[in-house]
Amino acid sequence: MFSQDDDSQQRVALFLVFGLIAIVVSSVLVFGVKHRGVSAKVADAPAVQVVAAPGMAAVPASSAATTQAASDAASVKVEQGIVKFYFASGKADLAAGASEALLDVVKGAQAGRKVAISGFHDATGDAAQNAELAKQRALAVRDALMASGVPESQIELKKPEQIAGNTSASDAEARRVEISLQ
């Protein structure tokens, strides 16, 4: 049989083991939150990459490494006069920096040019759901343009287009909406 001294020694040992486990877990959580907070701030920074085109003002560019690291995050690019909005998987939320990227489009619309919005989706999964999500993304971009003062009569929404491929680069391309001035 066990004596009361053995029971109390076991309790003390268990208390020390559980205390040590609690300290390790809390240390990992605290370090992880601090480390993740820095990563989140970098990931939340506007991931805008710009290739300047004639008539388009430059938008501040972040590093390509940040854009690659946050490949599933929403971002904006301006390439050859076309503003490209990339969306996170399954979402229709605009990226930070969207307003700055739309400035030249808004100016063009104010000068009387029409704005064409084209949505894209991939061939994987349910085609109807993909097309609907592409439409929601295009409408989110349209709403941002209208909020910036572009009349709805100057905005043309094109039917969502399906793209082929299933690499991570084409996944991002499938989750995009393009805006061009006509």
Score class of each variant (00 low, 15 high):
V78E: 07
V78R: 13
E79H: 08
E79R: 11
E79F: 09
Q80D: 12
Q80H: 12
G81K: 10
G81D: 04
I82G: 01
I82H: 03
I82Y: 00
V83N: 00
V83E: 01
V83G: 03
K84W: 08
K84A: 02
F85I: 06
F85V: 06
F85S: 06
F85L: 08
Y86C: 07
F87G: 00
F87D: 00
F87Y: 09
F87I: 04
F87E: 03
F87W: 07
F87R: 02
A88S: 13
S89G: 09
S89L: 15
S89V: 15
S89H: 15
S89R: 15
S89P: 15
G90E: 05
G90A: 07
G90T: 08
G90H: 07
K91R: 14
K91W: 00
K91H: 05
K91C: 01
A92W: 07
A92Q: 07
A92F: 09
L94G: 08
L94H: 07
L94Q: 03
A95H: 06
A96Y: 05
A96G: 05
A96W: 08
G97D: 01
G97H: 05
G97L: 06
G97N: 04
A98Y: 09
A98M: 08
A98V: 04
A98Q: 03
S99Q: 09
S99H: 06
S99I: 04
E100D: 11
E100H: 09
E100F: 06
A101Y: 07
A101G: 04
A101F: 07
L102N: 01
L103M: 10
L103T: 13
L103P: 02
L103N: 07
L103H: 11
L103G: 05
D104G: 02
V105K: 00
V105S: 00
V105C: 00
V105D: 00
V106N: 01
V106H: 01
V106L: 01
K107Q: 06
K107H: 02
G108H: 01
G108R: 00
A109G: 02
Q110G: 01
A111G: 09
G112V: 01
G112C: 05
R113Q: 11
R113T: 02
R113M: 09
R113A: 03
R113W: 04
K114L: 09
K114R: 12
V115L: 02
V115E: 00
V115H: 00
A116K: 12
A116R: 15
I117V: 15
I117D: 04
S118D: 08
S118H: 13
S118Q: 15
G119L: 10
G119I: 11
G119V: 12
G119P: 10
G119W: 09
F120Q: 11
F120E: 04
F120R: 14
H121F: 15
H121N: 09
H121Q: 10
A123W: 12
A123N: 12
T124S: 10
T124P: 04
G125A: 08
G125H: 13
G125R: 12
D126K: 12
A127Y: 10
A127F: 11
A127M: 13
A127I: 10
A128D: 10
A128E: 12
Q129K: 14
Q129I: 13
Q129P: 04
Q129S: 11
N130T: 08
N130Q: 14
A131C: 06
